[in-house]
């Protein structure tokens, strides 16, 4: 691939302007469109593949999902082909009926599910961040076996998530799971981990925390190592206590990375699919079902209710966008240019 070495390239560098496409206002004889094209065609060519992929596979499905959410499409009335016969679609536009049915609680108990989804998101993100920060601070000290700890603590992230999720389901098993075996050995009554709404919720939160902490830990460790050591030295000369150092140097130093990973973590938890789908399958009953898993179930199980599922999905998206915008505003007010 590479013919020219970067070092050789750098040596010849004269002080040229930044390679920014359209900044220099050049006078051309042709129309403004032609000029735009001439200055930017290579940038556009480079982004074309992604734009096409996103447009075809996200744009089209999204607009179609948007449309479906205003219809009454379900398994019995969408167009399909059975053998030689083609059955045309018979679903029709029903306006905001789906949304009304969902928001009024008529369809799929939206509000309790939203509450649980929020509890889940807040609990998971807070625990991810808190535990991740604690471990990152500990690992940032000089201590024996630091590299070993670091490597082992990252393992939960290294195992493919669906594998570790299956593992947890086995650990929680009523009769043969190791948690209950331990309780029995200790002479305590066993717990039906996934059979009771409350313990099932705690159980899935524990699984998600286990899965998500390593990412936070590594990202925060990277952030900690980027804080200049001189700050700590200077503060020590000034007689700052460890707590003051943490409060006034470490926390501000981590602001930027924290704001990004907290937002990412929130979105990931909110949309977390496999943990619920594979550990509890939404149960017992549908008590641990998140908005996302429920929307999936609507579309792919029982009588497939495509329109309601799309409406659910749209509501989720709106919630997340509102959250992201509010979050960004809050950060900006705190003086953070994100």
């Amino acid at each position: 691939m590479a013919a020219a070495s970067p070092a050789a390239a750098r040596r010849r560098t004269p002080a040229a302007g930044r390679v920014s496409g359209g900044r220099a206002p050049r006078r051309e004889r042709n129309g403004p469109l032609a000029r735009l094209w001439r200055t930017h065609w290579y940038a556009w060519a480079m982004i074309a593949p992604v734009v096409i992929v996103l447009a075809v596979l996200i744009g089209i499905p999204l607009s179609r999902g948007l449309y479906l959410s205003f219809t009454n499409a379900n398994e019995s009335n969408v167009g399909r082909t059975i053998g030689m016969n083609e059955i045309p679609a018979t679903y029709e536009f029903v306006g905001a009926d789906n949304f009304l049915a969902i928001l009024s609680g008529e369809l799929g108990s939206f509000w309790p599910r939203l509450t649980w989804t929020l509890v889940w998101t807040v609990a998971c993100t807070a625990l991810h961040y808190g535990i991740g920060l604690g471990l990152a601070v500990a690992l940032n000290r000089r201590l024996r076996f630091r590299a070993v700890y670091r490597m082992l603590l990252v393992l939960p992230w290294a195992v493919p998530p669906f594998v570790s999720i299956f593992i947890w389901r086995y650990l929680y098993n009523n009769d043969f799971g190791v948690f209950n075996a331990m309780l029995r050995t200790a002479g305590l009554p066993t717990v039906g981990w996934l059979n009771d709404a409350l313990t099932a919720k705690i159980a899935v939160i524990a699984v998600n925390v286990w899965l998500g902490v390593p990412f936070m830990m590594l990202a925060l460790l990277g952030g900690l190592q980027a804080i200049p050591k001189e700050l700590y030295e200077a503060s020590r000369v000034d007689g700052a206590s460890p707590w003051q150092q943490f409060r006034y140097i470490t926390i501000p130093g981590l602001r930027q990375i924290s704001s990004t990973i907290v937002l990412l973590g929130t979105i990931w938890s909110f949309n977390m699919f496999p943990v619920i789908y594979l550990v509890t399958e939404g149960g017992p009953g549908d008590s641990s079902e998140l908005l996302v898993t429920y929307a999936f179930r609507l579309a792919f199980e029982g009588i497939r209710n495509y329109s309601a599922s799309s409406a659910y999905g749209l509501l989720i998206l709106v919630l997340l966008i509102v959250l992201a915008v509010v979050y960004q505003r809050a950060l900006r007010r705190g003086g953070e240019a994100w």
Binding site: I58, L264, L291, F296, Y312, L317, L320, A324
Partner: peptide
């Protein structure tokens, strides 16, 4: 796009 829940895209 990173915020898109799998559920809204999966059917379409």
């Amino acid at each position: 796009t990173q915020m898109f829940p799998v559920a809204i895209l999966i059917v379409p």
